[in-house]
Amino acid sequence: MKRVLITGAAGFLGSHLCDRFIQEGCHVIAMDNMITGDLKNIEHLFHLKNFEFYNHDVTTFVHVPGDLDYILHFASPASPIDYLKIPIQTLKVGALGTHNLLGLAKEKNARFMIASTSEIYGDPLVHPQTEEYYGNVNTIGPRGVYDEAKRFQESITMAYHRFHGLDTRIVRIFNTYGPRMRLNDGRVIPAFMGQALRGEDLTVFGDGSQTRSFCFVEDEIEGIYRLLMSDYTMPMNIGNPHEITIKDFAEEIIKLTGTDQKIIYKPLPKDDPMQRQPDISKAKEILGWEPKVGREEGMKKTFDYFKSLTQDELTKTEHRDFAQHNRM
């Protein structure tokens, strides 16, 4: 039985990865300090003999007894509300946390994967974004704490790969959505749906002409898994290349939810990227992967999940005026 350590395991993507590796017959060691995670995302796994959970902060020394075959480092705040509220922790989990886990991977001779992001491209001057593009990032802007943490993750991972011969993978994750997203985390899909379910007007920042490309979580997890199991060691984009403007997307949400809310506009936050679309040529060629779930199907599943939440969960929001940053 393969043993896999997943950090950020109680988060959105981390919890879905736990499910996937359990399905693959692995022994899953889940780790999270619960700063943004939620135990309800993984509580359905607690009764399994091949699942264990550690409440631990990876920016401190990480010890896991026994062998490890894979380490997937998915611990990090990933939304504007989170990383603007806890900027130092965001930088530390990208730097210290990654260093600690790379050391653990070296000790265990485990294959190591980091969750990088499309945010390493910043506000891109190249469209769509290929893996060869170096990006256009404001290192000292408010988003720099997240963008630069991820860029450092890639650098130190490649340093361990080249200097120590560590078996590494780098997945650049583009906008992903689906069940288990947090309504109050500042990303556009849960924000729009939360506003619609609460009967509020939908907030768009800027004029709504900025674009995003949304990938359903099932597709994203499949791409991540295939990359981990491949022999490819350079960064790879995993996302859905179907691009849509934020304004058009807001209109889709109003239609999906059957509400009569209006769209209201607010100033665009600093350094908010105007275009986001992955070039997935490498994923298609090397992994034989591309998204299968259309946005209509994926959004229906996501909306059904949000409708199942309690009234308390629907009304619990943080920084309501910043509840939708159009980042995801």
Rank of each mutant, 00 (worst) to 15 (best):
V217L: 15
P77F: 04
I244W: 06
R20A: 00
Q261C: 11
Y70D: 05
I224L: 13
D260F: 09
P291I: 04
G186F: 01
D304T: 13
A10P: 12
V204H: 10
V126L: 11
A75F: 06
N33M: 01
Y305W: 01
F51H: 03
G288K: 01
R169Q: 09
S281D: 13
G186P: 12
E200S: 05
K40F: 08
M229C: 14
L202G: 02
A10Q: 13
N55C: 09
I81P: 08
G223Q: 04
L228A: 05
K316A: 12
H319R: 12
D185W: 11
L102H: 05
G223D: 13
F21G: 04
D201K: 01
D321Y: 11
I263D: 06
G122S: 05
F61T: 08
G258Y: 10
N33P: 01
E52L: 10
M299D: 10
P235L: 05
K150P: 00
I6V: 15
I286G: 10
N50W: 10
R187I: 12
Y54N: 02
P179T: 02
V137I: 11
A283C: 03
Y121P: 04
N55V: 09
Q195H: 15
T98M: 00
Y225W: 13
N237W: 10
M193Y: 07
V145K: 06
P142I: 14
N240Y: 02
L5C: 11
D207W: 08
Y232P: 10
A149C: 07
F46K: 13
L39E: 13
H47W: 08
T233G: 12
E107V: 03
L39T: 11
E154Y: 01
